[in-house]
């Protein structure tokens, strides 16, 4: 952890109208590290995650990924970055309902320009790795919630991103499924060397992380002083 962090958010400031969602929020992730963002509802966790991923632009402050300032990039550049370097898992409703699970996993590869056949081949491997090969030909609507989340995890990792952003990935799952998804997710991320920014309010889910940061009223509380 002595080396430079891979992704740094500094002094982020963001308001939606009169609500201040982020206020001097600062956070960093090192390569290969799993960071859990915790905190009460409405504290700004998702907003922070969106800013770090270059989905939202902060009003002030800077997000640096591998030395490049995300906030200064053109929108297309950030899109390309998200396509190639980042992966995403959300709580629900992220799979394209009309594509099969296999095609869903292949989608990011195809967006990145891979051929259809090659994309489907690696998608298949990822589905197998997350133990959901049996839903490959089904549409997301025909898979269970847990299977769907595994497909989503496979889709987030299929491009071998450097950072995976996960916002309550097990929020809609029961304990057993949630645990299994987290196990597979974190194991796969560690295998591929991806860093993970994980928003959760469940301590058991956060226990899969290397480090946690607590967001409260738009600020990140650093725990370093106690350690």
């Amino acid at each position: 952890m002595a080396d430079e962090p891979l992704l740094i958010a500094e002094n982020l400031q963001l308001s939606f109208g009169s609500t201040t969602a982020l206020e001097h929020a600062t956070a960093e992730v090192h390569a290969g590290e799993v960071l859990a963002l915790m905190g009460p509802s409405g504290s700004g966790k998702s907003t922070l995650l969106h800013c770090m991923a270059g989905i939202l632009l902060p009003d002030a402050g800077r997000v640096t990924y591998a030395g490049r300032d995300l906030t200064a990039m053109h929108d297309d550049e950030r899109s390309a970055l998200r396509r190639t370097e980042f992966g995403f898992v959300f709580q629900f409703g992220q799979l394209v309902p009309e594509l099969t699970c296999l095609e869903n996993v292949a989608l990011p590869l195809r967006l990145g320009g891979a051929s259809r056949r090659a994309a489907l081949r690696s998608a298949e491997a990822w589905l197998e790795r997350l133990e959901v090969s049996d839903v490959a030909g089904k549409r997301p609507g025909q898979a269970s919630g847990g299977q769907g989340q595994r497909v989503a995890v496979a889709r987030a990792l299929v491009t071998r991103p450097k950072v995976v952003f996960a916002d309550e990935p097990t929020g809609a799952l029961d304990t057993v499924n949630g645990d299994r998804v987290m196990q597979l997710f974190v194991a796969a991320a560690r295998d591929t060397g991806a860093a993970v920014v994980l928003v959760t309010h469940e301590p058991r889910v956060a226990a899969h992380s290397d480090r946690e940061a607590v967001v409260r009223d738009g600020r990140v509380r650093q725990q370093e002083l106690v350690r």
Binding site: A53, S79, A80, R82, R83, F88, Q94, V96, P97, P108
Partner: peptide
């Protein structure tokens, strides 16, 4: 809308 937002988060081009 949610699905579209997810696709954009994934870095889908507006063109696509």
């Amino acid at each position: 809308r949610r699905l579209l937002a997810v696709l954009v988060a994934f870095g889908t081009r507006q063109r696509t």
